[in-house]
Design a binder for these strands. Structure first.
Lengths: 192, 192
DNA sequence: GTAGATACGGAACGCACGTAACGTATATGG
DNA sequence: CCATATACGTTACGTGCGTTCCGTATCTAC
């Protein structure tokens, strides 16, 4: 049963996405107003809000759709893989528009539905990729088989979000390495 | 050299704080508008903004000033102390107004100065109290003396913020215990 | 082909944060 | 006493998010 009524115009979605990307690149999140998006996309505001419930949701949808998947590292050791992946995460958090991310955090905190979308579309897929990395390490006997990979990875991601976004700490390779060390003790097979 | 010009009226600060507390308790952060605060406190908006640069800052200042210091646990073991402290933290994060916290996170993310205030006035003092707890454990030989207590505590706090506020996960005693376990491996003296 | 449902654009609105302009009040320093 | 600096209240404003109303357009179902 196809949906009733007049269907949405897919061309509008494309124009909206293009407008968001262009305006975001030009002047950043602060200067990105919903009216500016509507104007640049030649779209009415109601049409915009029919597709995206909030500014945070609009930007997330567009950016998440264009964002390429994370690179899955394979250095030969869990420590190396985690170091690489987390340095990429740190670089990402450091490069991103803080006003945009701040707005996103606020929305996630107070809007469980939006938070669920972010999880399903970004957090969880990336985490599963890293779960595979950990399981590889288990397979080659480097990591104890009873490891809770998802908990371990959330521990790592969570503290980096906290340190970088909330505490404004710079996390260089050394800090990441120390973090990985703390996380891997008790998980490596040889360390007992 | 006393400050030039007419001094601020301290009575206004008190009335503002009282108004924020009352309105917040009555209808929550969403319903708390700056105009409502000004009206309830019998204060003009400019007077309000002379004291507090933003709504988030206003609420933080008032709440932080009234918030009582955390209870420092002393169960006899680090694991027990951490469990108790973190369960208190979890309860706090679970009980707090999510719209208010979300706004606070956004402000912290994009405003380093505000983030610094929150750190100095809340995060760091509480962390130092827990550092003392860890150092007590070191003193009685329970914890290795080369432990980085602050890093350890930030690891714990960070992941709880991430899980509770951003992932909307319920963290019960079991989850907290598992988290404490992961953090303490490699730190306890007898575990080598 | 007609009815019902939904989309579109245009325009206006409500709301709330944060500022600005103005006159008045209260402090310090000479 | 007078100049200067800051606070206070009133009022009005600018900006931007999100909504609503309305007339028109485009689908499906019967």
């Amino acid at each position: 049963m196809p949906p009733r009524g007049r269907p949405r115009d897919a061309a509008l979605d494309e124009r909206i996405a293009a407008a968001v990307v262009a305006l975001l690149a030009a002047d950043g999140y602060e200067a990105l107003t919903m009216e500016a998006v509507a104007a640049a996309a030649n779209v009415s505001k109601p049409a915009l809000y029919r597709r995206h419930a909030s500014k945070a949701s609009l930007v997330f949808s567009v950016v998440a759709a264009r964002g390429e998947a994370m690179a899955v590292p394979d250095t030969g050791t869990v420590a190396g893989d985690l170091q690489l992946a987390l340095e990429g995460f740190v670089a990402f958090l450091g490069a991103v528009d803080r006003a945009a991310v701040g707005d996103g955090l606020a929305q996630m905190t107070s809007d469980a539905e939006f938070a669920g979308r972010v999880q399903r579309e970004v957090f969880d897929p990336d985490r599963e990729r890293m779960v595979a990395v950990v399981e590889r390490a288990v397979a080659r006997g480097e990591v104890r088989p009873d490891v809770d990979a998802r908990a371990l990875l959330d521990d790592l991601a969570g503290v980096l979000v906290y340190r970088i976004l909330l505490r404004h700490e710079v996390q260089g390779p050394a800090e990441v390495a120390a973090l990985v060390d703390r996380a891997l003790v008790g998980v490596l097979a040889d360390a007992r």
